[in-house]
Design a binder for these strands. Structure first.
Lengths: 221, 221
DNA sequence: CCTACCGATCGGTAGG
DNA sequence: CCTACCGATCGGTAGG
């Protein structure tokens, strides 16, 4: 016979928690911390607002869980790309394509919320997740390129690996446009989105590595 | 004898309005639209909250005035840089330095607020101010470079002038760091800030034009 | 997991 | 330009 609501199994509790996190993820990333009320989150999950406080101590803790999940997932994917046995430029293209498709489209909102809505301890934690988990793999790629002499080092007018990683991140975000938008979630369009992202990524990496200046003579390509 | 409060001169009205706009400018750009209450703005001006509604119909209209002023001022400065009789690269460096020092440090917050807090008509207006007034002069610089054959055109793997302008904008914002922060407003430090911005701008434009790849042979710098 | 409720704060209005 | 006030909404708690 069906379980009464009172004695929920632990799996159901976990299911509810996952649903809350997924819903909060979607809303926080689209609208920002302040613009998303706990009531809206709860109702989108089929719950009343006080029920959220059974799973999370407060709104900030739910937000932190969302951020942690995003940064961990992105960081792991970028680390897998870094470890591929492919030329540096190809891995950079894959990383850029991944960022176009899967990174939070409005990462600056995330930073803004971190700065103004989190207490000092949480802010420090997120900063560490971001720097190590997320930017780390990208910075390693650029560091590798510099050590192998492919990329300009600091003494040759280049940027340090972390700044380079930020640069790739910013450029990718600035090159996001509607044709890569997640909302166009038609089944067969996923392949098209990925194809478009790969082409965009190739352009981004080409400009980042070789610049906008027109090449004359042997360097043209 | 002193004027009674009841019959304020038009100049005083204008002064108060200017003060409101300047205060709102500072707060909106730092904290975003929603996070700044009309009460906080009013009290920072030495007024009560309902007094704001004598100068602006509602909060959104005040926000629009702030945005309009920022984009117009930035756009005019960039247009003056574009018209200078200097090599393209030098003008790009000046533009990047200007963006580092004077552009809204959190332009993505501005975009986010536009998207989610303004009605359709206002959003369209701001979009036009941004595209024509602000990005226009930058795009013209890149268009000039492409016409003169200095920069890669679309058919050579380059980006169109507007995308190029966005790129310069994003890179400049991603290269903002604390040593260029406006809050360090010590008198004699203004020169240092400008010097630091010019150096940063040179690095930005160098990477944007020539890329991160290490040059071997005659192209080395 | 719910109902019922708290104090605080929001943007905006009435009326002078 | 002020005092006084409105309805709506916020994050969070009490108690079951």
């Amino acid at each position: 016979m069906a379980r009464r609501r009172k004695d929920l199994a632990p799996e159901d509790l976990l299911e509810t928690r996952k649903k809350i996190v997924a819903t909060a993820h979607r809303l926080f990333m689209e609208l920002g911390y302040r613009a998303v009320s706990t009531r809206v989150i709860a109702e989108a999950c089929g719950l009343t607002q006080p029920a959220l406080y059974h799973h999370f101590a407060d709104k900030q803790e739910l937000y932190l869980e969302v951020i942690r999940e995003i940064l961990a997932k992105n960081g792991q994917a970028l680390e897998r790309i870094r470890q591929r046995e492919e030329p540096l430029e190809q891995r950079l293209r894959r990383a850029a394509a991944y960022l176009l498709l899967h990174a939070p489209p409005n990462m600056n909102i995330m930073f803004h919320d971190m700065r103004h809505e989190l207490d000092e301890a949480s802010r420090a934690a997120v900063h560490e997740w971001f720097r190590q988990g997320f930017v780390g793999p990208l910075a390693s790629l650029f560091g590798e390129g510099q050590r192998e002499g492919r990329l300009r080092g600091l003494e040759e007018g280049g940027a340090d690996p972390f700044s380079s990683a930020f640069l790739l991140l910013s450029i990718s975000r600035s090159m996001l446009s509607t044709d890569l938008d997640k909302d166009k979630t038609g089944e067969g369009l996923d392949g098209q989105r990925e194809q478009a992202a790969l082409e965009r990524a190739a352009l981004i990496v080409d400009i980042l590595l070789h610049g906008m200046v027109r090449r004359t003579g042997e360097n043209a390509g």
